[in-house]
Design a protein around this nucleic acid. Structure first.
Lengths: 139, 139
DNA sequence: GTGTCTGCAAACCATTTGCATCGGT
DNA sequence: ACCGATGCAAATGGTTTGCAGACAC
């Protein structure tokens, strides 16, 4: 996964990307595996995982929030924002105390979404994703 | 995990909550285990997991975005918002096309955060959390 | 006393990895 | 021919679960 690697265009990689493009659901790796398998019956799950990683790295696809595989908990049950470091997983609180305007805006987004998607929004668990100061340096 | 259960206040549960309240980091279950173990050396990891679940359910603590344990991918590499169902994990796109105001607001939040936290914000991976139409009904 | 909770260990399941081989360039 | 990519299977690691005994109410 070195950034200095020249990736090849393999049949598998191409098909995975095509299948992902066809669909507006947000499939899991296993789902992608099933989708792709209809066209490449001999592909392996491992290959799917490896290719998803490459496609992420080359910006062709997106991984939904929470790149980290392990869950994190917060003793503060109040809804608030977080910033998560893409690279090391570090999470900071985003103090929004002084950001009345932004908070109001979030609330409004919530209600707009509720209307447009018929979801009942129970909270804004919002994470911005970025690079923390330390990882920023050593890039 | 039935919602019709009367939870008891056990020593373990209390200590876990206390330790979580002490701290502004966002510990993983394993981290919580280590923290609590200093006070209750015989507690087990399983107990920590079960109690975190209960504390979530009773709203005493919060779980950071992405309640689901498996990752989801998106063929659309453009930054956009999602709504995720707390109960069944279903994810919908939140079409923000018509929401110029909100999008602008998000951008501003990003830059405010960048300033306040010294993170370099690379994208707004935003998820609202709620109940999807189906799960809303059968609650 | 009843029914929840605990510790322990085994089970689970998504993801990762080692290895020999294959295939793109 | 080189080196990345694949298939397969085994390993990993976070989380869950079954069970017998302990504890809260």
């Amino acid at each position: 996964m070195d950034s200095g690697k020249k990736y090849r265009e393999t049949r598998q990689r191409k098909v995975i990307l095509e299948e992902l493009a066809k669909v507006t659901s947000h499939p899991s790796a296993e789902d992608v595996y099933e989708m792709v398998r209809r066209r490449l019956p001999r592909i392996s799950l491992g290959t799917v995982y490896r290719n998803l990683e490459v496609l992420l790295e080359t910006g062709k696809i997106q991984r939904l929030v929470s790149g980290a595989s392990q869950m994190r908990f917060d003793g503060n049950a109040q809804p608030h924002c977080h910033v998560r470091c893409q690279r090391c997983g570090r999470i900071d609180d985003a103090n929004l105390d002084e950001l009345e305007a932004q908070l109001a805006c979030l609330k409004e987004m919530g209600s707009v979404l509720a209307r447009k998607t018929s979801f009942e929004i129970v909270g804004q668990s919002i994470e911005f994703v970025g690079l923390c100061p330390r990882c920023k340096k050593k890039r």
